[in-house]
Structures are given as C-alpha cells and as structure tokens.
Amino acid sequence: MAWFKRKEKGIQTSTEEKKDTPKGLWYKSPTGKIVGAEELEKNFYVSPEDDYHVRIGSKEYFSILFDDNHYEELNPGLTSKDPLKFVDTKKYTDRLKEAREKTNLKDAVRTAVGKSMGEDLVIACMDFAFIGGSMGSVVGEKIARAIDHSIKNNIPFLMISKSGGARMMEAALSLMQLAKTSAKLAQLAEARIPYISLCTDPTTGGTTASYAMLGDINIAEPGALIGFAGPRVVKEATGQDLPEGFQTSEFLQEHGFLDFISHRRDLKKKVNLYLDLILNRELRS
C-alpha cells in the first residue's frame, strides 16, 4: 500500500517552476562517492571516501601551496596569436575566445611567486580547462619567464603539469616549446637551483617529453595518468591489451620515473621538506 497516491497523471509543474539543485553543490567521484563542494574544498579537493584526487586548476593549487593564498602573478597578460591562421572544425581564434570566456583564464598556464611555509617559491601551474592544458607559445614563454625569475632571484621552481600535450593549432611552434622550456631548465640546473616537477592528472604528450620529466625530483599525485602516447593510441598501435594500472603514477614510480607519490594534503609539507633537505636549510614544520 503506497503512502501517497497520484491523482492526476503526468508531471504538472511547469518548467519555469521546477527547482533544480544548483550546479556544483555536489561532486561525484568516478567510483560513485558523493561529496559536498564545501567539504571537498576543505579536503584539498580530494574525495574523502575513496581518496580520488579531483582535477583542479592553478587557482586551487596556488591556494593550497602559497601561504594564506598570497602570491604575485608573473606575466599575467600574455595571450596567444594565431600565426598559422589555423582552422579545424572551428577557427583557432574563436576557440581561444571561447576558452577565455569559459574559463576566465588567458591561457593554459599561470605562473606566480610567493611564500610557501615562509620561504620563496616560484610556481608554474597548468590549467587543463583551457584547451586541454595544451602547450603553445604562451605556455612556453610564461614558463621560460618564470624560470628566469627563479634564476634572477635564486628561488626554487615548482612546475605543476596538467596537460594533454602540445597545442596542435600552433603546429611546430608549439613543438619547439619542448626545446625552449628544456633549454631554460638547463640554465636553471647550471645555477644549481632546485627544480621540482609535479605531475598531476593528466600529464601526457609533449609535457612528459620536456619539463614534466626533468625535475631534480619528479613527483606525482596518486592515480594520475602520466605518459607520452595516450593509452588509446598505444592500444591501437600495438593491438595489445594494456597492463593493469598502465601509465598511472604508481606504474611510473615502479618503473623508475618518479621519486615519490604524494597525497595532495601532504604536498606543501613534502615539497618544502625536500627543499630544506636539498638546500641544507633548517627544517621547517
């Protein structure tokens, strides 16, 4: 026996009067765990039940790593041109405009300097939301200038990668950003300034073939996808089934490419512990 009985058939409420839950109030992790947005933020954007590390952008990483969210953004005004007049299903210029409007970002990386646990740190952090975190001229230039800032002021450099690879719409110009950023990192190494590369989900394509794999230490968040060719491409090219956990952070550490994997909650502490140790400073806690 039902408690309520529908007297009239169908849903009578008009569309305008329907009450939707506001978007972004709840988050559902891939394993189906549901968590409130506020709780998620407090938990470093990690789903508390299954430890799933939600994809976040530069705004969130800066707030996690810089003290009191204080930082100075470097070269915020740099924007892309369209030197090749590139058109696929859309014009590149339109794509850029849309991405800017949608994300409120200028391009796929933001660079900043600030204090982390009281000591200076330069961070370059990619935004996947901006055309898949693709690396073009602007990304390359901003990273290069951030490294210059590190060298000039003798400040350690942290690169947070989150990228689908090079930006196709800038063709070989974007390919050469691999060489440009790597050359800058060679200068940073010559200056004996520590470089930490943090790989987050996903770090793929051109980023792994340049700065993401060139850290004094390479570290990652748990469960991130990290690899040169994407899993689908590898599967198609080889015709083989991929091993379990292929191209995850854990797989990469087992194969010798990561120094350690850090939960996002421990990130700030671990990055600064490494810096204190490698620079022979007194440990901060």
Partner: peptide, 29 residues
C-alpha cells in the same frame, strides 16, 4: 622523520634492493 626516500633510476625500474634519500644527521643534510 627527516628522511625523505627518493625512488627510481629514470630508465627502467625502482630497485627495492637499493634504497636512497635525503636525511638530516646532527643538522646537516
């Protein structure tokens, strides 16, 4: 607690028979 283990040869594997990392002894890294 000051010991931070670092892994991997950057080529094929992280060898569990050989460990390494940074740590403080008497204030020196």
């Amino acid at each position: 607690d000051t010991f931070l283990e670092l892994h991997g040869d950057r080529t094929v594997k992280d060898d569990k028979a050989m460990i390494g990392g940074l740590g403080k002894i008497d204030g020196q890294s």
